[in-house]
Simulated assay, not measured.
Amino acid sequence: MLIVNNLVKKYGKQNAVDDISFELKGGEVVGLLGPNGAGKSTTMKCIVGLLRKSSGEITIGDHHHLSLEAKKMFSYIPETPYVYDMLTVWEHFQFVAQAYHVEDWKEKATELMELFELDDKKDKLGRDLSKGMRQKVSICCALIPDPQVLFFDEPMIGLDPKAIKNTRQIFRKLKEEGKTILVSTHLIDSVESIADRIMILKNGKILGNDTISNLKKQFVQEEGSTLEDLFLELTKDE
C-alpha cells in the first residue's frame, strides 16, 4: 500500500532523512518512533507531499505519491492541527466531504462528533476551539473520506484521556477494515498496544523495523523488557 525507496531529505549538507526504505501493507498499523530531531515528521511530510524530497521514490497504492490518484487514497493528521478560523466544526466536515466528493457523509460526521464529544461544538468557529478540540476536528475530517491509508503525526498530543482511548479504538476498527496506518509519536505507551510493527528512527536512519517481540529478542535480552526499554537501548548515545 505504501512503498518508500531510498528516501533522502537534505537541509544544506545535513541529511534529515538519510536513505531510508520501508513498506506498509494493507491492514497494518506501524508505529514510527524516535527522539526529537530523528526525522519522523520530515519523513511523513515527504510522503504526503508537504516537503519536497531530495531523492528517492514513494508510491501509495501503486501511484506516485504526488499524483491525484494517490492523494485520494490517504489522509494526513499533522502534529499541529490546522482548522479554518471562520468555519464552524460542522462546516469543516461539509467542506471535506465536498472536496472528496463524499456522499451520505452527515451520518458518519454525526457519529464522529458523538465519539469525540463535539456535539456541543457543532456551531463553534475554528478560531474559538482549544488545541485539543482542533485535534479532534482534524482527526474527524481525516476519517470522513474513508481513506485507505492514514498518516498520524503525534495524534495523541493535546487529547484528553477519553479521546486518546477513543482514538485507539478507531485505530483498531480501521485495522479490521484493512486500512493502513502510520503513526509517528513520542508517546510509546499509546502505540505499543495497537502497532503490528515498529520502526525506530535516529538521525534520519532506521535502526529497527520489525514486530516489537522480534526487536526485543534482537536488541534487549532481559526478561520482561518493555517497548520503552527497547526504544532507549536503540536510541542511546554511543
Rank of each mutant, 00 (worst) to 15 (best):
Ala109Cys: 07
Tyr100Ile: 06
Gly126Asn: 14
His101Lys: 15
Thr110Leu: 12
Cys141Leu: 04
Gly49Trp: 11
Leu50Pro: 06
Asn15Gln: 13
Phe231Gln: 04
Lys10Pro: 03
Leu7Cys: 13
Gly61Ser: 10
Gly158Phe: 09
Ser190Asp: 13
Ala70Lys: 00
Lys13Tyr: 09
His64Cys: 10
Gln98Leu: 03
Met44Tyr: 10
Leu182Asp: 02
Ser190Ala: 14
Met1Ser: 06
Lys106Cys: 06
Lys173Met: 11
Thr226Glu: 12
Ser55Leu: 12
Ser21Arg: 10
Gln218Glu: 15
Ile77Trp: 00
Leu227Pro: 02
Tyr84Ser: 02
Leu66Lys: 02
Ser55Phe: 13
Leu112Cys: 05
Ala70Gln: 00
Gly39Tyr: 11
Asp229Lys: 07
Asn209Gly: 04
Lys173Ser: 13
Pro35Ala: 11
Lys72Asn: 15
Ile77Met: 13
Tyr76Val: 08
Lys25Gly: 06
Glu28Ser: 04
Lys216Pro: 02
Gly158His: 12
Ala97Cys: 09
Lys217Asn: 15
Gln135Ala: 03
Met86Asn: 15
Arg134Pro: 07
Thr88Gln: 04
Lys122Tyr: 05
Met44Gln: 06
Leu50Ala: 09
Leu129Met: 12
Ile3Lys: 12
Gly126His: 12
Leu182Trp: 06
Thr235Asn: 03
Glu114Trp: 13
Leu207Trp: 09
Ser54Glu: 06
Ala142Cys: 08
Glu91Asn: 06
Val4Ala: 03
Asn203Phe: 09
Met86Ile: 07
Gln94His: 11
Met113Phe: 10
Val137Asp: 08
Ser55Met: 15
Pro155Lys: 03
Asn15Val: 05
Glu69Arg: 09
Gln94Cys: 04
Gly34Asp: 05
Leu112Phe: 08
Leu50Trp: 11
Phe219Gly: 05
Arg197Tyr: 10
Leu129Gln: 00
Ile157Asp: 14
Met156Leu: 07
Asn15Arg: 13
Pro81His: 05
Ile139Cys: 10
Lys162Ser: 05
His64Ile: 08
Glu238Trp: 02
Val29Cys: 04
Glu117Tyr: 05
Gly208Phe: 15
Ser21Val: 02
Arg172Ser: 10
